[in-house]
Amino acid sequence: MKAVLVHEPGDASALTIGEAPKPSPGPGEVLVRTVAAGVNRADILQRQGHYPPPKGTTDIIGLEASGVVEEVGDGVERWRVGDEVVALLSGGGYAEYFVAPEGQLISPPPGVDLVTAAGVLEVAATVVSNLDLAELKPGETFLVHGGSGGIGTFATQYAKALGARVASTGGSEAKLAHSRAHGADIVLDYHDDWPTQLREATEGRGADVILCVIGAKYLEANVKALNRRGRLVVIGLQGGVKGTLNVGLLLSKQGTVSATSLRFRPAEEKAEICAKVERQVWPMLRSGRVKPSPETRIPFAEVRRAHELLESGENVGKIILEM
């Protein structure tokens, strides 16, 4: 089968399309013919050699994809050949076929085509699982960094649907306008002193929950922006892996800092998260309370361009590779 391969870590030119063995489903697994795959920041980190897959997982990049069931392994009960599915993966999405555990496949959202659906599940699973961890409550203030990206666009809408007041950061007026259009109550230019501006906009309180894709670079600023008993959840490393932390300030706020990775969770946990997304988020999409992010569709053969666009910071919404 054709797949995107990385022989040596590097920039987007390290991505090549070559031949790889077609996988076979084991017990409890499903083989899917790929229709489309979502492109994520974690894919860039893996290409660069900074985010290796879990032990025993394919080296082929790709954490989410959609497609049609080609074959089912022993013990699979829900799926049949020909079923349309979306998948949460530990790897393998950038290929003509992929294998996934039965529980990490769910039906596409009602009324959403398979290409768009390829960019919904990983985002939804990330946001839902982490806002559950942070115990976001109605009436609280929620801050998401990168509000115009795939995670940020979904998180803004989902937090609003949960009854939260939403703030988001962005680096241009167009991106701030995007966040406003998707429900953000407060928009903050990250070139400015956004922690102070957030506190001013919230009568000195700050954020009860912060979802951060930046990592080390924003660690101290995030703690400064927290409300008393605020919860910071770090899910990305765009700003590096080592930072400084004023523990005294964190202590004075009785705040908490958590860091999570969806990719390395056990299959059972992923299956539970996927089931909750199907149960809770898909009805929101059907009713229009939450809408899929704006998307840029790029042909599979132009995977380098997809990575370059994501790295440029110019993209708004989700990038999807079409097979």
Score class of each variant (00 low, 15 high):
Ile17Lys: 01
Pro21Glu: 14
Ser24Asn: 13
Ser24Thr: 15
Ala42His: 08
Asp43Phe: 01
Gln46Pro: 05
Gln46Val: 10
Pro53Arg: 05
Pro54Arg: 10
Lys55Trp: 02
Thr57Tyr: 05
Thr57Arg: 10
Asp59Met: 06
Ile60His: 06
Ile60Gly: 10
Val69His: 08
Glu70His: 11
Trp79His: 10
Gly82Phe: 02
Ala87Ser: 15
Leu89Arg: 14
Leu89Phe: 09
Ser90Val: 09
Ala95Glu: 04
Val120Asn: 02
Thr126Phe: 07
Leu136Ala: 06
Pro138Gly: 12
Gly150Arg: 05
Thr156Glu: 01
Ser168Ala: 15
Ser168Trp: 00
Gly171Asp: 04
His182Cys: 04
Ala184Thr: 00
Ala184Cys: 03
Asp185Trp: 13
Leu198Tyr: 08
Glu200Cys: 12
Glu200Gln: 14
Glu203Pro: 03
Gly204Ala: 14
Gly206Met: 11
Val209Asn: 04
Gly215Gln: 07
Lys217Ile: 01
Glu220His: 10
Glu220Ser: 15
Arg228Phe: 14
Leu237Pro: 00
Gly243Phe: 06
Thr244Leu: 13
Ser258Phe: 12
Thr260Ala: 15
Leu262Ser: 13
Ala267Gly: 10
Glu278Ser: 14
Gln280Cys: 07
Trp282Gln: 07
Met284Tyr: 07
Gly288Phe: 08
Lys291Thr: 15
Pro292Asp: 05
Pro294Asp: 06
Thr296Phe: 12
Pro299Ser: 07
Phe300Thr: 06
Phe300Trp: 12
Ser312Arg: 07
Glu314Ser: 13
Leu321Asn: 03
Glu322Met: 11
